[in-house]
Every structure is written in C-alpha cells, then in structure tokens.
C-alpha cells in the first residue's frame, strides 16, 4: 500500500488512487495518417520494465485529477510526482 503525494491534495493512501498505466503516450493528433503498425504501436505497446517507470495515476476518490508518477518497479519507491503536461524528470 503506497503513500502517494497527490500534487493537488497532498499525501494520501493508495486506496484513494487508480493507476492508468504508462505515461507520456500522447494520442496521435492525426490518427488517420497512421498505418496499422503505427496505430498499433500507440494502442497496444506498453513497457514493463524493472526499474524506474513513468506512470499515470488518478486521485479518483479525491480531486479526480490525473498526474504522473516515476516509480521504481523493483521496490515500488516513488521517485518523483509531477503534473500532467510536464516533462518526465531525468532520473
């Protein structure tokens, strides 16, 4: 059970949040210009790495805001939390 420091509400229990998978996968602006492979890359391909992974989290039982989390999947340590639209930190 993580403690997650929501950038809008502060530190809260993990049970207030949901994870939304890998972060920084922008929806293509012009999907119709993409071929099947390119679209499949956006739609299906996700990383599952051991180490620091950038993820989207939503404070669903709180402010309902989405934000980004850099989490080390090997020990669940949260290295950094930053807002939507911000660039991933160099870690």
């Amino acid at each position: 059970m993580f403690l997650i420091n929501c950038p809008y509400c502060g530190e809260r229990d993990q049970s207030e949040f949901v994870s939304g998978g890998e972060a920084h996968i922008a929806r293509p602006k012009q999907p119709t210009e993409l071929n099947d492979d390119q679209w499949a890359e956006y739609l299906f391909m996700r990383k599952n790495i051991k180490g620091i992974q950038f993820e989207r989290w939503n404070h669903v039982h709180g402010c309902r805001k989405w934000f980004n989390v850099a989490r080390d999947t090997s020990n669940d340590k949260i290295e950094k939390i930053y807002k939507m639209g911000e660039q991933p930190p160099k870690l």
Binding site: G20, A26, R27, R56, N58, V60, R64, K65, W66, M84, G85
Partner: peptide, 13 residues
C-alpha cells in the same frame, strides 16, 4: 465519467 475526465485532462486540456 472517468474516461471523459481522462481525455479532457490529458489529451484535450
């Protein structure tokens, strides 16, 4: 509701 909020906040702010 969650899906619509997700798109509004992250794809179409």
């Amino acid at each position: 509701m969650s899906k619509l909020e997700d798109y509004l906040q992250t794809e179409w702010p």
